[in-house]
């Protein structure tokens, strides 16, 4: 690990201001992604701002019936929250499908959204990677790309977004609430939060320099039947090859979001619109524009089969 200095932020505004003014500064929350990457010198911050003691660890109902989730709420606590279990079960399910009990006890809402790709070439500092070292090329495209994305990819990068939680957040139309270095607060719709790689795969989100996530807000619950189905190489403690989040709401509407296949948590209106026509039609709509490699082409069939299994599960419950 490269040397760094460490400080505990005393207020949200302070944290944002010093993150923007101190060169090489980064926030640290659970540390489960950042420290992993720092040990490998993929991330090399010179100053860490600890945001764990700012009181951002609460879950509150909003005036319009939604839920405001503090940026520092641990994944374990969010999954176990009574309101989340009953009104946003797909979020509980997605969280519980991720990582391990120990990691979920540390991992936070903001850190989870911001976790970086699991592309093996991003992790191998001897290999070219446009995300890690802009302009160096992409090791994955001609390499082992089995786990990588098939939607939203570019000529520069085909990395997948690894988060389970973010897929449920995308499905539920969450808003990411932030404070900028100048003290201004804003809310970013989750659909606009993660960026597609394009020519700049190292730019991953809409966050500006110093901007700190304060909370993630969910709109009023849409009720219905919530499902999160994750397909992976092991039954537990593995990242998704494909995951599907679905809500069949009380009024007959259905929505889907997908993990493991997109450069960001994936959702399309066309897939939701095809819901009545079944798994094959939804898969076709969702996978429109897919760009696969020899290694990850199997994900297309896997998406359809995962959807089929969700439909069966839903019918069995009805």
């Amino acid at each position: 690990m490269r040397p760094f200095t460490y400080s505990r932020a005393t207020s949200v505004a302070d944290a944002a201001k010093s993150a923007a003014s101190v060169q090489g500064a980064r926030f640290i929350a659970g540390g489960t992604n950042l420290l992993d990457l720092m040990k490998l010198q993929i991330e090399t911050p010179t100053h860490l701002i600890d945001v764990n003691h700012l009181g951002l660890d609460r879950i509150e109902k909003t005036a319009d019936g939604g839920l405001k989730i503090g940026a520092l709420v641990r994944n374990t606590d969010l999954a176990a929250d009574r309101t989340v279990r009953s009104d946003y079960a797909v979020l509980s399910r997605a969280l519980l499908a991720g990582a391990s009990g120990q990691l979920r006890n540390k991992a936070t809402t903001a850190g989870n959204l911001l976790q970086r790709t699991r592309c093996p070439y991003f992790y191998d500092t001897r290999m070219p990677c446009n995300k890690r070292r802009p302009g160096s090329g992409c090791g994955a495209m001609q390499g082992m790309s089995r786990s990588l994305a098939i939607l939203g990819v570019s000529d520069a990068c085909i990395a997948q977004h690894p988060s389970d939680m973010a897929v449920a957040m995308r499905l539920l139309d969450a808003q990411v609430d932030t404070m900028g270095a100048d003290g201004t607060a804003r809310s970013i719709p989750i659909a606009d939060f993660h960026r597609l790689p394009g020519d700049t795969p190292h730019v991953e989100t809409a966050l500006q320099s110093g901007e700190i996530i304060t909370s993630v807000t969910l709109p009023k619950s849409i009720g219905g039947t919530h499902v999160y189905r994750k397909v992976r190489d092991r039954a537990s403690y593995a990242f998704a090859l494909v995951s599907v989040a679905a809500v069949f709401d009380a009024k007959g509407g259905t929505r889907f979001a997908f993990g493991g296949i997109g450069a960001k948590p994936w959702r399309t209106e066309a897939a939701d619109a095809a819901a009545k026509s079944g798994a094959k039609a939804v898969a076709q709509a969702a996978l429109n524009g897919a760009r696969t490699t020899h290694h990850n082409d199997f994900k297309q069939a896997l998406v359809e089969r995962t959807l089929a299994s969700i439909y069966r599960q839903k019918e069995a419950r009805a």
Binding site: Y6, G30, T32, D50, N52, Q102, N105, K106
Partner: peptide, 19 residues
């Protein structure tokens, strides 16, 4: 490396002592 911190199990390798 699992230990209990403030009563909860965590991986002690992925956290800093100063935190």
């Amino acid at each position: 490396c699992t230990v209990m911190v403030e009563g909860r199990r965590i991986n002690s390798c992925l956290t800093l002592a100063v935190m």
